[in-house]
Deep mutational scan, measured.
Amino acid sequence: ELVLALYDYQEKSPREVTMKKGDILTLLNSTNKDWWKVEVNDRQGFVPASYVKKLD
């Protein structure tokens, strides 16, 4: 499943990933309501769920 980055996000820990507004990311896990695991540029990590939106 793919998600769209709604905002820029700068990683604050090694478990997170940086994304730019408009990026298309692969959603790996959305079981946590606050932090979703995504893959971007061959890196996996977490981003705030409120910063991304699922693409239909």
Results as ranks from 00 to 15, higher is better:
Q10Y: 15
A49I: 03
L4S: 05
K37P: 01
P14V: 10
N29P: 03
E11Q: 14
R43S: 07
D23R: 02
N32E: 11
K21I: 06
D56A: 13
E11C: 11
K20E: 06
W36M: 04
L55K: 05
L2F: 15
K33W: 08
V52S: 00
G22M: 03
T26P: 15
K20Q: 11
V47D: 02
D56C: 12
K12E: 08
L6W: 03
T18Q: 04
P48I: 02
K37G: 05
E1K: 12
Q10R: 13
L6Y: 04
K37Q: 13
V3W: 09
D8V: 02
V52M: 06
G22R: 02
K21L: 04
Y51E: 03
N41I: 12
T18M: 04
T31I: 09
S30M: 09
T31H: 12
G45N: 01
Y7M: 12
Y7L: 10
S50W: 10
K12W: 04
Q44V: 14
Y7F: 14
K37M: 15
E39I: 12
N32Q: 11
L25A: 09
P48K: 04
E16H: 06
R43F: 06
L2H: 10
L28C: 06
L28Y: 04
S50P: 07
V40D: 10
L2W: 13
Q44P: 06
N41F: 13
L2T: 09
P14N: 11
N41T: 09
D34V: 14
N32T: 07
A5N: 00
F46H: 05
P48H: 04
Q10D: 13
K20D: 04
E1P: 12
Y9S: 01
E11K: 14
W36T: 04
L25Q: 00
D42A: 10
S30T: 10
N29M: 09
N32G: 10
E39C: 12
R43A: 06
K37E: 14
D8N: 08
K33V: 11
L55V: 11
L55S: 05
I24F: 06
K21V: 07
I24Q: 05
E16F: 06
L55W: 08
D56K: 11
Y9M: 01
A5F: 01
F46A: 02
T26F: 14
R43G: 04
N41H: 13
K37A: 09
S50F: 09
K54R: 14
E11L: 08
I24V: 12
S30E: 14
V17E: 00
N41M: 13
D42F: 11
I24M: 07
V38F: 00
D34W: 15
V38A: 01
D34H: 15
D8G: 05
D34Y: 15
T26M: 13
L4W: 07
L25F: 07
S30Q: 10
N29S: 13
E11P: 14
S13V: 05
K53P: 02
D34N: 14
K20N: 07
V47H: 01
L27E: 00
S50H: 14
K33Y: 08
L27P: 00
P48T: 01
K37H: 11
E1C: 13
E39N: 07
G45T: 02
F46T: 03
D8W: 03
V40N: 15
W36R: 01
S30W: 09
M19D: 00
V38N: 00
S30V: 07
N41W: 11
W36L: 05
A49Y: 03
L6C: 06
Y9F: 07
W35D: 01
E11N: 07
N32P: 05
T26N: 10
S30N: 09
V17M: 11
V38C: 05
S50V: 09
G22T: 02
W35F: 07
E39S: 12
E39P: 00
Q10H: 13
V40A: 14
D56T: 13
V3G: 14
G45V: 04
Q44A: 11
L25I: 08
S13K: 08
Q44M: 13
G22C: 08
W36D: 00
Q44F: 07
W35Q: 03
D8E: 05
L4F: 09
K12P: 04
E16W: 03
S13N: 13
D23M: 14
L4V: 15
A5V: 10
K12S: 12
V40Y: 13
T18W: 04
V52H: 00
S50K: 14
L27S: 02
K20R: 13
I24P: 02
L28I: 13
N32C: 09
K54F: 10
Y7W: 11
V47L: 02
L6I: 11
T18G: 09
V52Q: 00
M19Y: 02
V3L: 14
F46L: 09
Y7N: 09
Q10I: 15
G22Y: 05
K33I: 11
V17W: 06
N29T: 08
D56N: 13
L27M: 04
T18I: 03
D8L: 02
E16L: 05
P48R: 03
L25P: 01
V47I: 08
I24C: 06
L28W: 06
R15W: 15
Y51W: 06
D56V: 12
L28M: 08
Y51C: 10
V38Q: 00
L25G: 14
D8Y: 04
A49T: 06
P48Y: 02
E16A: 06
K54P: 10
W36C: 04
D56E: 14
K21R: 11
L55C: 11
L28G: 00
D23T: 09
K20V: 10
E1L: 13
M19C: 07
L28F: 04
L2K: 15
Q44W: 08
D56Y: 11
S50N: 13
T31D: 15
W35L: 03
V17T: 06
V40K: 15
G22S: 03
K12Q: 14
L6D: 01
D34F: 15
E11M: 12
I24A: 03
L55M: 10
A5R: 00
E16I: 03
K21P: 03
S13W: 06
P14F: 09
Y7C: 12
